[in-house]
Design a protein around this nucleic acid. Structure first.
Lengths: 247, 247
DNA sequence: GTTATACATATCATCCTACAACTTAAAACC
DNA sequence: GGTTTTAAGTTGTAGGATGATATGTATAAC
C-alpha cells in the first residue's frame, strides 16, 4: 500500500513532499472542497512516513488555508478562494509561460505604483532610489550584483508609495521573476547575461524627482516591457493608446 | 525561563502561536537576516512546549521562506524580500488603516485587469460574469449571499484576463477585504449592512461586453472607489486626470 | 416509545524518547 | 605540522503514550 513520493529535482524534506502531493491532489480537484482528508494514520501508512511528517505537512496546508483541521474529526478541504496565503511553487516557475504571466502582473502593479510613488515620495525615498540606481550603473554589468541593485531599485519605489501591501506584493512578484530567470538560465546557458538598461531606469527616476505621476507610469511601463523583451518574453499587453500616448 | 504565549482572541493552536511569536520577532528586526534561530530545544524550553510543536512552527516559517533550516546547524533567518509566500495575518486585518491600503492595492490590480478582460474575454467568461451579476441583483440586498456574488463577479473578471496569477492575486486581496469588513462589522454593529451598488457593476459588465478596455478600466476604478467609500474608507488616489478623464 | 445518560470509538493535539543524518570542532595520531 | 578520529551538538524522522474533542451506540430511566 506504500506509495512512492517522487523526488522532484532537488531533494526536499519529506513533509514538503507530502504537502506538495496533497496540494496537487486538492488543486486538481481529486479532493473537493468540503471533503475530508484521510486520517493522519492513513496518510502515514500510505506514504510510509511517520505521523510527525504527516502532521508537519498538514500544518503547512492549514497555514495556507487549504484545509481546516478540527480536533476529533479530521481535516476538511477548503474552497480555493479563501486561501490565507499566496504561494508560488518552485516547480511552476520553471514553466516558461509563467514568466509571461508574471511580467504582465508586474507591469500592472508597478506602472501604477510608480505614479503613486511620484506623488508621495519624500527626499529619503529619492535618496534610497538614487543609491540603488548608482549601484546598478557602478557594478560590472551582467553581474549578479547589478540584478540585486535592479530589484532594490524597484522595491524602493514600491516602498515610496507608503503602502506596505504594494511593497510586499511587488517584492514578491519581482523575486519570483528573478528565480524564474535563474532557472531558465540553467537550461539555456546562452542566456548567461541579463542585460540591464540603465537609461530606462534613469527616466523613471527623473519622473519621480519631478513628481510627475503620468511620466513615471509611462516610463515604468516602457521599462518593464523592455525588460521582458530582453529575457525573451513578449508581453501581449499592447493595450490601445496607453503606451503610445506617452511616447 | 518559561515564557507565556499570549492567547490572542480565538484560541489558536500552540504551533501557530509559536510561529506568530517568532514571525513578529523577525519582522520587528530582533532577529536579523542571516542570524541563527535558537535551537529547537531552547525554543521548546523557552515556550514550555514540546519540540514537536516548535518543529511545526518552524516548518511554517520555512514554508513562507522566512527561515531556512539546515540539518546539523540550525535555522537561518532569510531576508524579507525573498519570501516564498504572501500571508496576511488575521490580526493585521483588524487595523482599520490596513483596509485603506488593501483597497488601494485592489484598485490598482482590478482597474487594469478589467481592461485586459475587456480585450480577452470570450462568451463563456461573459456568461459567468453575467450569472454572478444576476445573482447579485436577485439576492436580498445586504445579505451575505449578495456579498458572495459580488466577490464572484470580480473573480470571474479576473479569470477572464486569462492570467492565472492575476486571478490568484485579485481573489486573495478581495478575500482579505471581505474578512477585514467582517471584523469591522463586529466592533461597529451599525455597519450591519454592506450596500452593493448594482449600477456600478452593470456599467463594468457592459464595458466588457462592448470589448472596450478604457471604459472597463474607468468603470472598475469608479466602482472600487465607491465601494471603499461605502464602507467608510476614503481612497487617497485622486490621481490627476485619470479618473476625471473617463467621467 | 422517547429521552437521557454513560460508554466506546475515532480523530486530532501534544508530549516524550530514541535514533539517524549532518555539521563542527576539538582531540588523537602519525 | 598535517591528517584522521572522535565527540558533541543540531536537525530530521520514527513510533508510542496520553489528553482533548466529536460522534455514534447501547443501556437505563421516564
Amino acid at each position: 500500500m506504500k506509495q512512492r513520493l517522487a523526488a522532484i529535482g532537488t531533494v526536499e524534506a519529506l513533509p514538503h513532499r507530502v504537502a506538495a502531493f496533497l496540494s496537487r491532489e486538492i488543486e486538481s480537484g481529486d479532493l473537493n472542497p468540503g471533503s475530508l482528508l484521510p486520517t493522519e494514520q492513513q496518510l502515514s501508512e500510505k506514504f510510509g512516513v511517520s505521523r510527525n511528517v504527516v502532521r508537519e505537512a498538514i500544518a503547512q496546508l492549514r497555514a495556507d488555508g487549504m484545509v481546516e483541521a478540527r480536533q476529533g474529526i479530521g481535516s476538511f478541504v477548503l474552497a480555493p478562494e479563501q486561501r490565507a496565503a499566496i504561494r508560488i511553487d518552485r516547480e511552476a516557475l520553471k514553466d516558461g509561460q509563467n514568466m509571461e504571466r508574471l511580467f504582465e502582473l508586474r507591469c500592472i502593479l508597478e506602472a501604477e505604483s510608480a505614479a503613486l510613488a511620484a506623488e508621495r515620495r519624500d527626499q529619503d525615498h529619492l535618496d534610497a532610489i538614487k543609491a540603488a540606481l548608482d549601484r546598478m550603473s557602478g557594478e560590472e554589468r551582467w553581474e549578479d550584483g547589478s540584478i540585486d541593485a535592479d530589484l532594490l531599485f524597484h522595491r524602493e519605489i514600491a516602498r515610496a508609495t507608503g503602502n506596505s501591501y504594494i511593497h510586499t506584493f511587488i517584492s514578491f512578484v519581482c523575486e519570483q521573476i528573478r528565480r524564474s530567470i535563474y532557472y531558465a538560465r540553467q537550461t539555456n546557458p546562452l542566456h548567461d547575461l541579463v542585460e540591464i538598461n540603465v537609461g530606462e531606469h534613469v527616466r523613471i527616476y527623473e519622473a519621480l524627482v519631478a513628481g510627475d505621476p503620468a511620466a513615471a507610469e509611462v516610463a515604468m511601463r516602457a521599462h518593464i516591457i523592455g525588460a521582458a523583451n530582453r529575457v525573451g518574453v513578449k508581453l501581449p499587453l499592447s493595450r490601445g493608446g496607453r503606451l503610445s500616448e506617452g511616447k
